[in-house]
Design a binder for these strands. Sequence first.
DNA 1: TTGAAAGCGCTAACAT
DNA 2: ATGTTAGCGCTTTCAA
Lengths: 337, 337
Amino acid sequence: MTKIGIKEIAAKAGVSIATVSHAFRNPGRVSDETRKKVLDAAKKIGYTPNKLAASLRTSRSGNIVVIIPDISDSHNSEIIKAIEKVAHSRGFSVLLGDSQGSEEREREFAAMTVSRQADGIILMSHRFPFTIGEDALSIEDLPPVVSGCEVSGYDGIPAVAIDDVRAAMDATRHLVSYGHKDIAVITGDLDSTSSRDRLEGFRGAMSQAGLTCNEDLIIRAEYSLHSGEVSAESLLLNKKRPTAILCFSDEIALGCMYALRQHGFSVPQDMSVMGFDNIPFAKYFSPPLTTVAQPAEDIGSACATTLLDLIEGNQPENLRNLLPHKLLIRESTRRLS
Amino acid sequence: MTKIGIKEIAAKAGVSIATVSHAFRNPGRVSDETRKKVLDAAKKIGYTPNKLAASLRTSRSGNIVVIIPDISDSHNSEIIKAIEKVAHSRGFSVLLGDSQGSEEREREFAAMTVSRQADGIILMSHRFPFTIGEDALSIEDLPPVVSGCEVSGYDGIPAVAIDDVRAAMDATRHLVSYGHKDIAVITGDLDSTSSRDRLEGFRGAMSQAGLTCNEDLIIRAEYSLHSGEVSAESLLLNKKRPTAILCFSDEIALGCMYALRQHGFSVPQDMSVMGFDNIPFAKYFSPPLTTVAQPAEDIGSACATTLLDLIEGNQPENLRNLLPHKLLIRESTRRLS
DNA sequence: TTGAAAGCGCTAACAT
DNA sequence: ATGTTAGCGCTTTCAA
C-alpha cells in the first residue's frame, strides 16, 4: 500500500495541495465543484489527514491532559467522563494523567504542554505542577490550566469547585440538628484546600452551634475505602466515642461503615455516618448514605468548557466558578432521641 | 520569549542540530563531553523537545487509545488505571476513548490511529471498530489492536480475558452446592462474547447438575447499578421466584440487592445474590458480595504490554491470553437448608 | 478561486 | 564523533 497523503489526493483530483487542504478546513474558500472533486478523490482513495502534521504546523495538538490522583475513584471517574464528553464534542481528545498521587508524575503530565502534546491542563490534584522561575516560566506563559479542585496558592488560575466551607457546614448542621454533639470527622489529605475548607466549615458550624470539637475525633485520612476502614477502627479505640462521623468522601464513609459493622456497630442505630460527593454507589448502599452531593458531571463539563475557551483564546469572565452542592439525607444518619 | 528549538540549543552549545538531537536520543553517539554541553545548554535555556515534530518525523505518536464503553464503571476504571501505569512506564501516553456505548464514537476513536494520533488501540468494547474493505483496509494493515474483552468474530487479534465459560460454571456450581435449584441470571449485553460465554457456562453447569434453567429467570440487562435494580424488580414479578440470582457484574448485583431490600427481601436470608468482577466496593457492601473475581489489574497490564510489544514490532506468541479468575465466597449467598 | 512555496521542529541517512 | 541535508505531511501567506 503506497503511502497516501494530501499530495496523492491533489494529483488524483487534479488540483494543488493547497486546494486540497482548503477543501478540508476552509470549505468556503474553494468552489463547491472543486471541493466535491477533492472529497470524492479522498474518499475513493481512503484518505484521512495526518493530524500530527497539521498539529505541528499549527502548534495545536487538539489534546488536553487531565491530571488526576486516581482515576478509579468513583467521584473522579464521573468527572473525567464529563470532561471527555465536552472535549470530544469540541474536537479535542483527552490524555489521561493518572498521577497516583505522585508529584513527579503530575509534573511529567504537565510537561506534555511544553512538549506540545497537549494544549492545556485540567488539574484535579491540589498541587501545582509548575514552579514559576524554576521551570523557566514566568507566570504569564503558563499553559492554559484550569483547576477542578482548588489549587493552593495560585490565585490566577481559573477554578471550578463547590463551596467546600459551606458544604461542610451544611453537613455538620444536619448532624447537629439530629442532636449529635460528639461528632468525629475523617478528612482527606489536608494538603488540599478542599479538605482544609471542609474542616473549617465543620469547625465553624460546630462553634456556631455552641459545640466544641474534640480534636481526638478528627482523623486525617485519604479518599479511599481502605483509609475509611482504618480510620474508623482507630476512632473506635478512642475512649470518648462519637455518635456521628462526618466523612469527607463517600468512599471513606463506605469503608467506615464496613469497619463499624465488623465491630458490631450498626449504622445508624449505634452511630450515624455521613459522606461527601454522592457517588453512584451511595444510594445503593445499605443503609443508603446520607451525603453532600457534588455535581460531578457539571464540574467536569465546566472545567472542560473553561479550559477549551482558554485554549481558544477567551478568558473566562470569573476565575472562580462555584457550583451548588446539595444535602442528601438518606438513611445512614439518625436523630438522637 | 523567543521561540526555542533544537536550533537555539545547537547555537548555544556550539554544535550542529544533529548533535543536539543525538545527545537527547542516542546518547551513545556523542562524546560525553559534548552531550553534557548540550544538556547544560538545554537546561539553562529551558528547552523541551517538541514531541509533535519528532512524532511526525518518526511516524510514532507515542500514544495509545483505549476504547471503553464507560470509564466510570468500577471494573473498567481499574483496568484503565493499570493500562495507564504500564503505558507510562514504557514512555507512552494514553488517550481516553470513552465511547458511551456508541459505535460511532468507537469508530472515531479507532480512526485516531489512521490520523496518526495514536499508534495502537486497546479495545474494551465488544464491537470491532473497523470494517475490512469498507475502511479501505485489508486485514493485514489494521493498526495494532488488542482486545481486553473478547471481540466477536475477529480471531486474528490478540485478546486478554478470563475464561468466562468456566468462571460462570464455577459461580453456578457454588450456588448449586449451596442447594439452589431455581437460579435466576441477570446478564450483560448479549452482543458481547463475554456475556454470552458466561451464559453458556451457566447453562452448562446447570445441566451438569441435572437442573433445568427456567428461561423466564434469565434477564438481559446492562452492566450498571440501575440496570441491576430494574432487572431485579422484573424478576420479583415472576410467579416462580428464584432462590438465588447470579449477576454478570458486581454493579448489577449491587443494584439488584438494593431493589430486593426495597421490596422487603433480605440477602442472603430470602435470596442469595452473586456478582462478577470483584470491584473494590464488593467487599465493603452489606452484605459483602460473593463474586467471581477478575484480575482487573493484570488484565489491564497484559493488554498494555501486548499492545506495546505489538507496536514495537513483536508479535505476541499466543493470541489468547487467559487469566485466572477466582471464586470469592462472602456473605451474599447462603446454603439452603 | 486556485497555486507556488516556505516552513513547523525534528530525525536519520550520509558525508566528513 | 560531528555536521549537512533532505524530508515527515501539512498550513498558510502571497501571488496569479
